[in-house]
Design a protein around this nucleic acid. Structure first.
Length: 112
DNA sequence: AATTTGACCATAA
DNA sequence: GTTATGGCCAAAT
């Protein structure tokens, strides 16, 4: 492809797969994308998400601790939390129950 | 070009 | 639970 797009991998392609009311961890995104070691890059990629990428549910992406990252020095993380709550994701002590809302992945093959 | 910074994850003490 | 370290890459300065 003669595309001069950024070097970011297909992270977005994975994030967009996250269903509403569910959350995924950076490591998982990188994992499904095929880059289990580039967990960081995932977050950075989402940080660079332009307003045009509204199709990318970056809000559903959180850290492995189930907490929303404070990415900015402001209370922006609160904004993300609000977005998730709007989708049905509950927050407990500024945290999310990964064992309840953690996205299992593409669920390929599993019957339930 | 080199340095610094950044939305992370896993291990160890 | 916290603190410290190693891994990996891209954007900004």
């Amino acid at each position: 492809m003669t595309d001069k797009s950024s070097g970011w991998q297909g992270f977005y392609a994975v994030v967009v797969q996250i269903p509403a009311g569910r959350v995924a961890t950076y490591g998982q995104i990188a994992r499904l994308a095929g880059f289990p070691q580039h967990a960081r890059q995932v977050g950075y990629a989402l940080a660079a998400l332009p307003e045009s990428r509204t199709d990318v549910p970056w809000q559903r992406v959180i850290n492995s601790k189930g907490e929303v990252s404070p990415r900015a020095r402001s209370g922006m993380h609160h904004f993300q939390q609000s977005l998730l709550e709007a989708e049905g994701v509950s927050f407990v002590n500024e945290r999310v129950d990964l064992k309840t809302y953690l996205w299992e992945g593409t669920e390929s093959g599993a019957d339930g």
